[in-house]
């Protein structure tokens, strides 16, 4: 069970959160072409290593958090607020 240090609530179990996917993709602007939206919805990198993900504190403060997680070890390095840009380790 992953533990996530919510910036609003403190250290909590994974069970309190809902995974919401890749936080490295950004919704295209209003006039962006269909292809940009296609990539936003469907194209994912599936990296082996550090990854920035949305975790929603659904049984807590109901805030979406940016979690820097290692996809092999599940280590959580950083938990940031939605509007922040967390540092991602190179290795």
């Amino acid at each position: 069970m992953i533990r996530i240090d919510c910036p609003w609530c403190g250290m909590r179990d994974e069970a309190e959160f809902t995974y919401r996917g890749d936080a490295t993709v950004t919704r295209p602007g209003a006039n962006a072409p269909e292809e940009a939206f296609h990539d936003f919805v469907y194209a994912r990198k599936n990296p082996r290593g550090w990854h920035v993900e949305w975790w929603y504190h659904s049984s807590g403060c109901r805030q979406y958090l940016k979690v820097v997680r290692h996809t092999m070890t599940h280590e959580v390095r950083t938990v940031a607020r939605a509007t922040e840009t967390p540092e991602v380790p190179s290795e």
Binding site: T18, R20, A23, R27, Y56, S58, Y64, A82
Partner: peptide, 13 residues
């Protein structure tokens, strides 16, 4: 509710 919160917090904060 989650959908609204997602867009409000992450897309149009």
């Amino acid at each position: 509710m989650q959908h609204m919160e997602f867009y409000l917090q992450t897309v149009w904060p």
